[in-house]
Amino acid sequence: MSRIALQLLFRRTLLAIPILLCVSALVFGILRLLPADPIAMSLPPGATAADFEKLRQSFGLDRSIPEQYVIWLGRLVTGDLGTSIYFRRDVGDLIAKALPATLELVLLGLVLGVAIGIVGGLAMFSWRGRMGEQVLDLGTTGLMAIPEFLWAILLILAFGVALPILPFIGRLSPELVLPPPVTGFLLFDSLVTGHLRVLGSALWHMVLPAFALAIGVAPLVMRVLRSSLLDVIQEDYVTQARLRGIPEHTILVRHALKNAALPTISLIGVQGGFMFGGTVLVEMIFAYPGLGNLMVDAVRNHDLPVIQAVGLVYCVLVLGINAIVDVVYLAANPKLRVA
């Protein structure tokens, strides 16, 4: 990786700090608006007022809100994300278990979605002005009218219920046991420890959720790639290349795609960030044990420590994917590289 790319990553990290500070304050502030008392909800019916006070103190909820924020932030920096009110477990542990699952899912979904999008975009471009383009164009509009969580449900209906060929609950078949954790990433761990049946089952379980996420991005990638290709072939340098007798396929690959890739890369950055949002409901619907599922459980139980920690983790993920995409963009765009 070139020096300039490292510089960019460094600067991105530096810029992420104030953003994350604002994000954390925002999350903390919003959650303190909460009218209901999470402690009261989590107590058993026979609890006394003394129990209530004791519990409030143990979670630090008796202090003023800015105080609570500073304490929370201080612990956050040392890696202590607090304790879940509902699960009564360390929030850090909960996230450590859920995060790899979500990352694997998003990665698979993104790769799938971008691949479909690129193929579709090229197809639309090469069929420009013909019937095929119209059909695909209308198709993308239709696809985009269905959000990920409805795709999840429709896919379950189609491939889990009507044609029961694919699993749609959890991350593994129930008879399998998890391999010993190495990195926490199931696909990776099962591969390196040689548990190929686990690997197969995990991938099999990810097909539907990953596909639900992929259909969310694919039509957008298709459209942006197609329209940027259409823009690029109008450019003077494409006309000039034609006037030099450069063959059409060389023009497409060498001149058009290289330039059309730029807006597409930007789009993938934004959509990759949004895709983390998409996982929330998709994971919940597929009972997939990732961050999203954790988040929904926390929301339902007003489990504030979990909500604020998971919320923050999502923001870190979004900023991370943006930084990665920026580096890719930098590599693809000499105008930014050569300053």
């Binding site: 340098y237 006037l243 030099r244 450069i246 001149h255 330039n259 000499p334 105008k335």
Partner: peptide, 29 residues
């Protein structure tokens, strides 16, 4: 085109591809 008949454009700045070097474009020709 480009061999027996060649063109000199009106807008030289947009006539060259911004993501390829001069060497790459001349080399392609």
């Amino acid at each position: 085109l480009g061999d027996r008949i060649a063109f000199i454009p009106q807008e030289p700045l947009t006539a060259l591809n911004p993501v390829l070097t001069i060497g790459q474009q001349f080399g392609e020709h």
